[in-house]
């Protein structure tokens, strides 16, 4: 990690929260595509966080938790169609993926259906017998100059890259033999990465969507 001294100070000012609004916005925007700057911010955050010992904990009222549950887990009737649309589209792409197989699967099939609020729709279908993952990508594509990268998260370990998603349509992603045992209980996730995928092998961009593998 080597950011300039000025960037290191900006990172500290960002962490403290003292930057004037326009500078704060510009800095936050840089964080989206400068992983070294993110590291610097994270380091300052870790160093400063003990100062929070000065803050007295204060239990929030119960309505806060109720609001969180409602917003995360109970789609409002009004947004039903918005939710159903992608679900149907994903279900269709799973059917298409199954139809795409060149023979009836011998072993169990697992599927992860991922949708984001921004309209990304992605399905991953795993054929345990062949050790092959098929992915289907639809809806909102990644931004210009960016790619979506697919990750496997299992056993509490760090996410493992399975490769860059196609911008649209379907693709086959072979699963290395040593990972196959993990897939059935894994969560699949996609992140927003630089073109060609994360340069470091570690997810650098924000999480776009994630879903657990389900046996079908």
């Amino acid at each position: 990690m080597s950011v300039t001294s000025n960037d290191s100070l900006l990172a500290a000012e960002y962490v403290l929260g003292v930057l004037p609004a326009p500078e704060r916005v510009i800095f936050a925007e840089r964080l989206l595509h400068e992983p070294e700057l993110v590291q610097e911010v994270t380091a300052w955050e870790a160093q400063m966080s003990p100062l929070v010992a000065d803050v007295l904990p204060s239990p929030p009222p119960a309505r806060v938790w109720r609001g969180i549950e409602r917003r995360l887990f109970e789609p409002a009737a009004r947004s039903y169609w918005r939710w159903l649309g992608p679900a149907i589209a994903v279900a269709l792409s799973v059917v298409a993926l199954i139809g795409w197989m060149d023979r009836a699967p011998q072993g169990p099939l697992y599927v992860a259906e991922m949708t984001s609020d921004e309209g990304v729709r992605l399905a991953a279908l795993y054929d345990a017998d062949k050790g092959e993952m098929r992915v289907s990508m639809a809806g909102a594509p990644p931004r210009e100059g960016r790619d979506f990268e697919l990750w496997l998260i299992a056993g509490g370990g760090a996410p493992i890259s399975l490769g860059v998603m196609p911008r649209e349509g379907q693709a086959a992603m072979p699963i290395p033999a040593e990972l196959r045992a993990l897939v059935a209980s894994a969560t699949m996730a996609i992140t927003d990465e630089p073109l060609g995928g994360s340069p470091t092998g570690v997810a650098t961009g924000p999480l776009v969507a994630a879903a657990p593998m389900v046996r079908i």
Partner: peptide
Amino acid sequence: AEILADEAPNPEESVLASS
């Protein structure tokens, strides 16, 4: 934001990772 930027000691040593 350039105030003092040049006076800062060794940018390479701004490794704060040990948290």
